[in-house]
Amino acid sequence: MQHTLNFLLVGVGGQGTILASEVLVNVGLAAGYQAKQAELHGMSQRGGSVVSHVRWGQVIYSPLIGAGEVDVYLAFEKAEALRYLWQLRRGALAVINLHAIEPVTVTSGGQPYPTDERLRAAVAQVTDRAVYVDAAAIAAGLGNIRTENVVLLGALSALMEREEMIGSELLPDEWVVQITARVPGRFAEVNRRAFEAGRAVVIAAS
């Protein structure tokens, strides 16, 4: 692994962004790194955007990532994916969820919601290492829409392996351990399947 890895997670309140970042910081710790996480909540329950920073490295000081220093981007929602794109390093890894949650400024305020074409064009300006996942549909197919976040984590783990950002020090099982430790026992199995389904999206595209 390189000296440090900076993950930026963005989404909308209620999508499980915070749980995903808790998993990620603990996966980092389990893989032997110093790991820190910083999140913003408060008004987020009321449908606002949620941002979480996760950092892995030999030594980590700031819990916040500096501008232009994001190595890995995990975007849970399309408009939010565009909103924080400027913080990425050129060539960063990106997992982008094709899920639109239209804010009231769109639904009753008349502002336009960005098209998929605009999203893909903007991402292409920044990196060619992006994968798009329809995690909500996959999670719904598994019978539990709330596993959307775990589908995305699965995709992320496979993408990081494919791009050799992580190696044999971190096996997929370690992610599953951290995920199942954070969900009620009766949901462990569906989360396991969600993680695998997310991995399959990346593996199939490779």
């Binding site: 606002g48 400027w86 960005p114 903007a122």
Partner: peptide
């Protein structure tokens, strides 16, 4: 200074907190 990207994402709708 780490270079920050000048990426054109176009206008984005705001996401203000609301009564649920």
């Amino acid at each position: 200074r780490a270079p920050t990207l000048d990426v054109d994402v176009g206008p984005l709708p705001g996401r203000p907190p609301m009564l649920c």
